[in-house]
């Protein structure tokens, strides 16, 4: 069982690690946060319509809502609402609708708000699904695997477009790259990942996995491709270390994974050769030494 928990965590980390880099670089970390919350009504509606949790409908419903979120935020911004305000309004409102929907349907549906928010990675291996005659693989692993495949495919094929859109969207547009399309493609992938991950790490902690490893990797390198690699490796490290730390302390596994991510971020912040506090302090000391 521990094997599947770690695999699930690593898949979440990989998917989030890749997308997180683009979010961090485009200064859209908050949009990841917004999407992860506002997909809740999508999940509940899809759940009510399909009547089961074993359904890809949930993945679809939530992805659609993720795109609706991004679209609404954009719309509000264009009509003059401040960026942070429009993000805040959209995601809290949609999340609230989700909470209401969950409470209204509490009797018919056993969708536990706690597990939506905090995940239940410890139980992933209970819920297996047989695909192509392969048995015994947890459903979460299948869904995360498919999501990850989609990410590899889309980012792999259009890496140069995503990079230019992140660095210089005006130039990208002038070159004829459909910037809006790639924006929504990225947001669609973020929504999909959020939903695929929500069952295992929950809607709140997925934001941690989206942002923290990517922000840590940002401190450690000066190449986008390496940043993505580091972000994934850091994420996987968090998944593994987090699992064992949680087992040792008998604490929440998903919580521990993100806690480890936070710790690694602090370590990077202090020791990073380029951005690190320590290096800055050393340099300042040297300057003072020269002047004295």
């Amino acid at each position: 069982m521990e094997f599947w928990i770690i695999v699930t965590g690593a898949l979440v980390a990989t998917a989030c690690g890749i997308l997180g880099c683009f979010l961090v670089l485009r200064r859209m970390s908050l949009i990841g946060d917004a999407i992860s919350h506002s997909v809740l009504p999508g999940i509940v509606i899809a759940f009510m319509m399909s009547g089961s949790r074993d359904s890809l409908a949930m993945l679809l419903g939530a992805s659609v809502l993720g795109l609706v979120t991004v679209f609404l935020i954009q719309l509000f911004q264009q009509s003059g609402v401040q960026a942070d305000a429009s993000i805040g309004v959209v995601f809290t409102a949609l999340f609230a609708v989700g909470v209401v929907l969950v409470s209204l349907n509490a009797r018919q549906v056993d969708l536990d708000l706690d597990c939506v928010l905090f995940g239940e990675i410890a139980y992933v291996h209970w819920n297996t699904m047989s695909v192509f005659g392969i048995d015994g693989v947890p459903k979460a692993v299948w869904i995360l695997g498919i999501t990850l495949l989609a990410i590899f495919l889309v980012i792999g094929l259009f890496y140069k477009q995503f990079k230019l859109c992140a660095f210089d969207p005006a130039m990208a547009l002038a070159c004829g790259i459909p910037v809006a399309l790639f924006h929504y493609l990225l947001m669609g992938l973020v929504s999909m990942t959020t939903v695929a991950s929500f069952e295992s790490v929950g809607a709140i902690l997925v934001v941690g996995m989206l942002i923290v490893p990517a922000a840590t990797a940002y401190l450690l390198t000066e190449r986008l491709s390496i940043m993505i690699l580091y972000s994934v490796l850091i994420g996987i490290t968090c998944a593994v270390l987090g699992y064992y730390a949680a087992a040792w302390l008998d604490a929440s596994i998903a919580g521990m994974m993100v806690t480890v991510a936070g710790l690694l971020f602090v370590v990077a912040l202090i020791f990073s050769p380029s951005h690190g506090l320590l290096m800055r302090w050393v340099k300042r000391r040297r300057l003072v030494g020269v002047e004295a």
Binding site: L25, K163, L164, F167, D168, C175, G176, I177, T221, R223
Partner: peptide
């Protein structure tokens, strides 16, 4: 643009070819 973007000079110039 954000000059803190993780990339080097050569890479930025190569972006001129993307179109």
């Amino acid at each position: 643009v954000d000059w803190d973007f993780p990339t080097n000079a050569l890479d930025v110039v190569m972006m001129g070819r993307y179109g």
